[in-house]
């Protein structure tokens, strides 16, 4: 276990693993997303109150779930970096933040498209919507830190601290719909069950799984790029690319 961890945080080893697994993972993720979304859009039944417009759930829920999960993993990475100074942790944060921003935006956008016909408005300042907007702003703030320092270590340190502080927003997003009166409905899927009919739920779960696979694949690719940026002058990089030729 410890050996596996040590291998994964070593740049050359991770780079080789990612290089090999990326094409399969990426292809698989696209297939799974297509399966989930197409099933959801064309073959699952119409919702009794919302009508056809509910089908946006097959993009909205996976995007929102991925957007928050990325931040959770980034918080773990930030603590790892702050205590053990593991460089892979900062590579991870810097690679994942733009993905998080994109999926938070997608969640807000699809939510607005759904809200206009369903609620009668595309945006309100309720606790769930506002805290999700704050998540987007946090991601953008973290991204803007990337190029704000001259020294690599200062950037990594600053990014870690901001990520950790921003973590305070995560329980607020999660619990906003439970604690306060919000326009956004409370969670349909909980550990104790789901209030979504099975015929609608199965494609949704497939779509969510596909989004996670996609983020894993693209995240690995982005980490490879970030590693190359940092290690370009190292021998192992030259060896890999000369071997290829």
């Amino acid at each position: 276990m410890k050996q596996l961890f040590n291998q994964l945080i070593s740049f050359p080893y991770f780079f080789k693993i990612a290089q090999k697994s990326f094409p399969y993972l990426f292809l698989l993720s696209i297939l799974v997303i297509l399966l989930g979304v197409l099933w959801g859009v064309f073959f699952s039944p119409v919702d009794v109150t919302q009508g056809e417009v509910y089908r946006i759930i097959y993009l909205h829920v996976p995007a929102a779930s991925v957007a928050q999960s990325i931040y959770y993993t980034m918080v773990i990475a930030s603590i790892t970096y702050l205590i053990w100074r593991i460089k892979m942790a900062s590579v991870f944060m810097i690679s994942m933040a733009p993905l998080g921003a994109i999926f938070t935006f997608l969640a807000l956008f699809t939510g607005a498209v759904w809200g206009q016909p369903t609620w009668g408005t595309w945006w309100v300042w309720d606790a769930r919507l506002t805290s999700t907007l704050i998540l987007l702003i946090l991601y953008l703030a973290i991204i803007s830190l990337f190029s704000s320092f001259d020294r690599r270590a200062s950037t990594d340190q600053a990014v870690s601290i901001v990520v950790l502080i921003g973590g305070i927003n995560l329980p607020i997003i999660k619990l906003s719909v439970e604690w306060w009166n919000t326009l956004h409905q409370s969670a349909s899927m909980t550990l104790s069950g789901s209030s979504i009919d099975n015929e609608m739920l199965i494609p949704l779960l497939i779509s969510i799984f596909g989004f996670y696979l996609y983020v894993t694949a693209i995240g690995m690719r982005k980490m490879q790029v970030e590693i190359l940026k940092r290690e370009i002058s190292h021998n192992w990089v030259k060896e890999i690319f000369i071997e290829k030729r």
Partner: peptide, 17 residues
């Protein structure tokens, strides 16, 4: 002055309903 509809967390197909 303004009425918004709130949707609950239940998703039910027409046929089932």
């Amino acid at each position: 002055k303004e009425i918004l509809a709130k949707h609950d967390e239940n998703y039910i197909p027409k046929e089932v309903k």
